[in-house]
């Protein structure tokens, strides 16, 4: 880790017609939930942080590293950002075994096949998927895929962890257990974490919540703050539904 290790910046990113403006400051070991309805621009923010989408304006830094600066045109390529992502539908590599999915980042960084696979097996054990190493990822259940995706992202030893609706594709029965597991992994992660979700229950993993509606942050605070004083009709509706 370099500098203060904070993921910080003020920027605008655009996907299609929707421009999202956000002000971020997440300290290492802290988790921010980006909360909001579908189409609010949550995934756009993640894509911009991961380097999959250029900034329209503003800048973003991770510790003392500039990830992107729209005014100077400086952009760090996604592969150089050390940003781990768990995608909404996991995007596991169908042509590789579970073990080689998790070993992928280490292999790309130049480690030997053997060392990468041994490390992958350790990560799989840690997420409770040790028995799946030789399996084919696309043949796994949603919950199993989610574990593999988390292991793959963490195995890359990223400086930031981005979780894009990691629980939304799961059945209700397994969701509670996996939420608890995910919370453990997030707690164990040393860097800043951003969790995108549209579920208040999932947002409970986070230390702080930012509500994003139509590209604008409409409320910021702890989950308790939101429950106590919903700032918008959308938040109020959800709080009431959950109560």
């Amino acid at each position: 880790m370099n500098g203060d290790g904070c993921l910080a910046g003020t920027f605008t990113a655009r996907r299609g017609d929707l421009a999202v403006a956000i002000d971020l400051d997440v300290a290492p070991g802290r988790t921010l939930a980006l909360f909001g309805p579908n189409g609010a621009g949550k995934s756009t923010v993640l894509a911009a942080i991961a380097g999959l989408l250029p900034l329209e304006a503003g800048r973003l830094r991770l510790g003392d590293r500039v990830l992107a600066d729209a005014s100077s045109g400086r952009v760090l390529a996604p592969e150089a950002r050390r940003v781990g992502v768990v995608f909404q539908d996991y995007l596991l590599f169908g042509h590789l075994t579970v073990r080689d999915n998790v070993a992928f980042a280490s292999r790309m960084a130049g480690a030997s096949r053997r060392a990468s696979r041994e490390a992958a097996d350790r990560w799989l054990e840690r997420v409770g998927a040790g028995g799946l190493a030789a399996r084919h990822p696309l043949a796994l259940s949603g919950g199993q895929q989610q574990r593999v995706a988390v292991a793959r992202a963490l195995a890359a030893e990223p400086d930031v962890l981005l979780l894009d609706e990691p629980l939304s594709a799961l059945d209700v029965e397994v969701r509670v257990d996996l939420r608890r597991e995910l919370a453990d992994h997030v707690r164990g992660f040393a860097g800043p974490t951003i969790l995108v979700t549209h579920s208040l229950a999932d947002a409970a993993i986070a230390d702080e919540v930012a509500v994003l509606e139509q590209g604008v942050v409409t409320q910021r605070g702890t989950l308790d703050d939101l429950r106590r004083a919903p700032a918008t009709p959308y938040v109020e509706r959800l709080v009431h539904a959950a109560a």
Partner: peptide
């Protein structure tokens, strides 16, 4: 093919060439 797995590979540190060699090619094999 679902090209987003290429983006996933990039976030895992794969350079453009590595993405092509290790993800895109097998994807379209």
């Amino acid at each position: 093919a679902d090209r987003r797995v290429e983006q996933a590979a990039a976030t895992l540190g794969a350079s453009r060439w590595q993405v092509f060699r290790h993800v895109t090619l097998p994807l379209v094999a």
